[in-house]
Amino acid sequence: MLPEWMIDVPDRLSQDWFVLARPAGKRCFVVSMNGTTVSRLRNGSVLHHFPSALPCGARTRENSGSAQSYCILDCIFHEMDQTYYVIDMVCWRGYSLYDCNAEFRFFWLNSKLAESGACEPPSHYHRYRFSSVPVYNCDQNGLLSAYTVQVPYVKDGLLFYNKHAHYQAGNTPLTLVWKDDKCSQYVIDTDSKGEIPSKQQVVLELQGDGKLTTSDDPPIVFGCLDQDFIQKTGLQPGNLLRFLINDGGLTFVNGKLEKADLVYQDKPNRARAFADSYSKVVFQYMARHAPLRINDLLASVDSPINQEDEPCDVEMNVVPTSHNIPILNQEQHGHQESLSMTDKLWG
Rank of each mutant, 00 (worst) to 15 (best):
C138N: 06
S123T: 11
Q140A: 14
A165E: 00
Y147V: 06
G142M: 01
Y147N: 07
W178S: 01
T175V: 10
K182R: 15
E120V: 11
W178D: 00
D180L: 02
S145L: 05
H126P: 00
P122T: 01
E120M: 11
G142N: 03
D156R: 11
V135K: 06
Y161C: 08
C119E: 13
S145P: 13
D156S: 07
G170T: 12
A118K: 02
D180V: 05
K182H: 15
E120C: 14
C183R: 07
Q168W: 08
C138H: 02
H164S: 15
L158C: 04
P122K: 00
V149D: 15
V149T: 13
F160H: 00
V154T: 12
Y125T: 09
N141V: 06
V149K: 15
R127I: 04
Y128A: 09
A118R: 02
Q150M: 14
V177I: 08
V149F: 14
T172N: 04
L143M: 02
P122G: 00
D156N: 10
T175W: 05
P134V: 06
H124M: 11
K155G: 10
R129D: 08
N171S: 15
V135F: 05
P121N: 07
G117K: 06
H126N: 01
S123W: 13
P152Q: 00
P122V: 00
Y147M: 09
Y161A: 07
F160D: 04
T148V: 11
C183Y: 10
A146L: 00
D156I: 04
Y125N: 10
